[in-house]
Simulated scan of single mutants.
Amino acid sequence: MPNPPSFITPAQLKQMFPDSSILDRYIIAREVNAKAAEFKLDTALRQRHFFAQIKGETGSLLEGQTEGWNYSPEALKRFSLYYRQNPKEAEQDGYLKDPVTGGFIRRADERAVGRKHFQRLNGNRASNPEDGYNFRGRGLIQITGYEKYDGFMQNYAKYWDDEVPDTVTNPELINKMPYAIRSAMYFWLHYRIYLAADSGKGYADVRAVTRRVNGGNEGLDRRQAAYLEAEGIF
């Protein structure tokens, strides 16, 4: 008898993420299959969107990664109102490259970027100026901001019965298994990302799903390409 749509296999994950580890594939298949209905990952359509978003964030590795902010001064001014209003600080905080070799003379000051731009976003606390940097995007789906790190920790015991990870004190835990996949599942459910997938238009819904994930169209082309891959796998 063929597997029902809600059941995923490590072999499918290998197809979608060819550079992933055997162990990670087995952990992810186990975690998703155990709670597919609870986390709204119980249809092939939802799984396609879920794993397409993960591939858009992690590429073919399928492992938690920490967001990097090594931006040029020009990039800082493009996406940040703060840096447009303070262009001298963009020059100070952005990276500096050798005009001849193209090598870095100085990397961006990511802590400063966190304080000046990202501190205002993603449920970070006004009283904690390092929240923007400390709670950068991490995990398989790049959960970002104090609100999400704390929310995952506070809600963890509703879904899992092992020790609750302190992802506020130790945010790097979000990159480690099983928390990398569990945090992605929590994000998918708690922020109702699945509702955009449930429209039922498949590829045409990737833009709406992406907007729910990151608030815009960042990496949309990667996510669209990943969705087309997922259609042949899940």
Rank of each mutant, 00 (worst) to 15 (best):
I233H: 01
E31L: 10
D42Q: 10
S72A: 07
F7M: 10
E130D: 15
P10M: 02
Y82N: 02
E57H: 07
M185L: 06
M153E: 05
Y146M: 04
Q12A: 13
A44S: 15
V100H: 04
R138S: 01
F118W: 13
V209A: 06
Y179D: 02
V206Y: 04
G94N: 04
R182C: 06
G151N: 01
A225E: 13
S72E: 10
L23F: 09
R138H: 03
Q12D: 06
N124K: 08
N134Q: 12
K116Y: 09
E38G: 04
P165R: 05
M1I: 12
E172A: 13
G103K: 15
F51Y: 03
Y26L: 12
R192C: 05
D42A: 11
F187I: 01
Y191S: 05
T169V: 05
E74C: 02
R120G: 07
G145W: 09
I143C: 07
K116F: 09
K176R: 15
T167G: 05
K14C: 12
E163T: 12
A11F: 07
A226W: 03
I105A: 05
R222P: 04
S72R: 11
D98A: 14
E163I: 13
G145L: 02
A197C: 08
Q47F: 01
N3M: 15
Q154V: 05
E147G: 14
Q47D: 00
A37G: 09
V100Q: 10
A197K: 01
Y26C: 10
N70D: 13
L220T: 13
A197H: 00
P178M: 09
K201C: 09
A37N: 05
D162Q: 06
V209G: 02
K77A: 03
L220S: 03
G103M: 14
A112C: 07
D131C: 13
Y95S: 07
G102C: 13
S72W: 10
I141R: 09
H117A: 06
R125C: 08
T101R: 09
Y186W: 15
G123N: 02
N3H: 15
I28D: 00
K116T: 11
E218Y: 12
L189P: 03
V32M: 02
